[in-house]
Design a protein around this nucleic acid. Structure first.
Lengths: 160, 160
DNA sequence: CTCGCTGCAAAGCTTTTGCACTAGA
DNA sequence: TCTAGTGCAAAAGCTTTGCAGCGAG
């Protein structure tokens, strides 16, 4: 199982950076790597609690923070509150259904064109990976939950 | 001044919807319409306080909420915390510089292509207006504050 | 007169911080 | 030993809610 190797490598990275390998860190890292790839801090804590209920969510946050500084983990904001964490080597953007909470992954290349345009025309460098794209997934649209409200609907009204 | 007419129309909309026209609402609506177009609830409250310091920020939130339900106002999240409010008839998306806080407006048409692609390929309906696009404005990039980290950097890897 | 609006205080939600104690190397 | 990590409690930051009194219509 390559997961064990990854867990091991990650823990050793922590140590190389001057940190220490502790039981809580080991369990958090193992759970994160073995998990679905998209976990909030709270979900991660819940899963960790199945093997060790005494690990505090503060420790989860601090460990995730340490991993993020190592470049092993990234976090993505889904909207108002929650953020999710995923392994940094898995580069993708996120579509977040605000109705059912489902997260879909899309390749960054999809936005390359828009991103280039924004850079050229506005001189602005976007960081599109740090916030999910909000909307409605297919099934929630079919349930009639997605209203209108987007200015995109209608005839193309300008060209920048 | 067309602003007075807009204020008046907005207040009457509130009444048509079963609401009441009060001094606080009048002042909040007037300040919002006369304002820069991008105000946080707190900024709006500050300006309103110049003419009436006793108006509580809770009232500002509730009035903005009422206006939003009428479709007169939209709010946009800039990131973790703050949201900004603007008139709904002014359709645009937002670029938010996470370094200096500057907000730039871009036409929704810019994203029409990506949006269509996401709809066609993922069946996902994005609501791109509800969250700003985060990044670094030109001047902050020139100050050397914008780091790397975006997966978009690198050879154009495909067109999806 | 009624019911919506208001101000105040307090709660809510996710994440961060202060502090004393524990434990890795 | 020495310093990083841990658990707990509390705070932080923005927004919402409960409640009693006021006032628009």
């Amino acid at each position: 199982m390559p997961e064990d190797a990854l867990v091991d490598r990650t823990l050793r990275s922590l140590r190389s950076a001057g940190g220490r390998i502790t039981k809580p860190r080991e369990q958090i890292v193992r759970t994160l790597i073995g998990g679905s790839g998209h976990l909030s801090a709270e979900e991660l804590a819940e899963r960790v609690h199945q093997s060790n209920p005494s690990i505090h969510i503060t420790t989860v946050y601090r460990t995730l923070d340490a991993l993020e500084r190592l470049g092993v983990v990234n976090h993505v904001h889904l909207g108002h509150g929650r953020a999710i964490y995923h392994l940094a080597n898995d580069a993708h953007y996120h579509l977040y259904c605000q109705e059912c909470g489902k997260i879909e992954e899309v390749p960054p290349s999809l936005f390359a064109g828009v991103d280039r345009k924004i850079t050229q025309e506005w001189g602005f460098k976007t960081v599109l990976s740090h916030f999910a794209f909000i909307g409605f997934c297919r099934s929630c649209q079919e349930s009639g939950l997605a209203g209108g409200g987007e200015p995109l609907a209608g005839p193309a009204s300008a060209g920048g």
